[in-house]
Design a binder for these strands. Structure first.
Length: 282
DNA sequence: ATTGAGACCTGTCGGC
DNA sequence: TGCCGACAGGTCTCAA
């Protein structure tokens, strides 16, 4: 149902669509249709999940986190091609089986009457079940940078994280320890908004002591704005994403910045496409 | 420690 | 039409 093309805004949209059917419901039945995605499913995945209820469904970076009645956390990541499909039973406890397609790897039958299928052709996604201790000390989660839409993410925080970094701004923004949840698309979009070159050294947005320069303020504001708009847009089912990017996937187009007149270019940076305007992004 | 390159896997799209 | 290579929005590991 929901096309999740997963950077932060899409994962957040997924969270919101699942929340009404998962929160305060329990897992009546869990089907696991293969042994692994990017990693193997945890041992006893099905048995440990069935019967438990979901206390809350939250998001951190691009991870969905279901807090369970046992104190464990169900961690879900959509990778590049993961999505959830929700089917509703006409009446609760009706024996209707979910029509699983070839890439439907996991199916949750919830007591809310929703059957939630996880589909992931490329299988770059992850599902894991973490104890409270594992969750607290998680090697990835515990090192994530601030949520970009939170107050904790400001110019000072971004400058501090970029201080002394020899790598490019593009690479720094993709680093989830610097700021959590940006991906290839929104990095291009944010750098364009901030009129900063993706190749610029990350350290240049901070003074030697780590204080934010004007560029850090622009970049922080641009990131928030780009993500805010994308979140609002993904909730509006009518709009189609690709028409809304200003530079992403628009090689050869006129730069959308008023008065710039430049042309959007594509360049491979860190093995991935970066879209930018060489005229106004410096 | 930091950084960049390659790997993971399948589907799709454009060119011949 | 069919085949083939290039490419895809995310991590993770490895080696310099």
């Amino acid at each position: 149902m929901l096309d999740a093309l997963p950077e932060l805004p899409e994962v957040e949209a997924t969270r919101r669509s699942l929340e009404p059917w998962m929160t305060h419901a329990h897992f009546d039945e869990v089907e696991v249709r293969r042994r692994d995605l990017r990693r193997p499913f945890p041992r006893q995945f099905r048995a440990r999940l069935e019967g438990q209820s979901v206390l809350a469904l939250s998001r951190r970076a691009k991870y969905l986190l279901a807090t369970l009645s046992s104190g464990e956390t169900l961690l879900m990541h959509l990778g590049m091609s993961g999505s959830f499909r929700i089917e509703l039973l006409a009446a609760p406890a009706t024996a209707v089986s979910f029509r699983a397609g070839s890439h439907d790897h996991v199916v949750f039958h919830m007591s809310s009457g929703a059957i939630i299928g996880y589909n992931d052709p490329r299988r770059f996604g992850v599902m894991d079940l973490l104890s409270a201790a594992e969750f607290a000390a998680h090697p990835v989660l515990s090192r994530l940078g601030p949520e970009p839409l939170s107050l904790a993410f400001d110019a000072a925080a971004l400058a501090r994280a970029c201080q002394g970094k020899a790598t490019s701004l593009k690479a720094a923004l993709l680093d989830q320890r610097v700021v959590a949840g940006l991906g290839n698309i929104y990095v291009s979009e944010a750098l364009h908004r901030a009129a900063l070159s993706p190749r610029r050294r990350a350290s240049t947005i901070a003074t030697p002591s780590g204080a934010p320069r004007a560029s850090a303020r622009r970049l922080t504001a641009a990131i928030k704005r780009v993500l805010d708009e994308a979140v609002a847009r993904t909730l509006d089912a009518g709009s189609y994403r690709s028409s809304r990017f200003r530079v992403y996937d628009r090689e050869g187009a006129r730069c959308p910045r008023t008065g710039c007149g430049g042309t959007v270019r594509r360049r491979v940076q860190g093995g991935r496409s970066t879209f930018f305007c060489p005229t106004c992004q410096v």
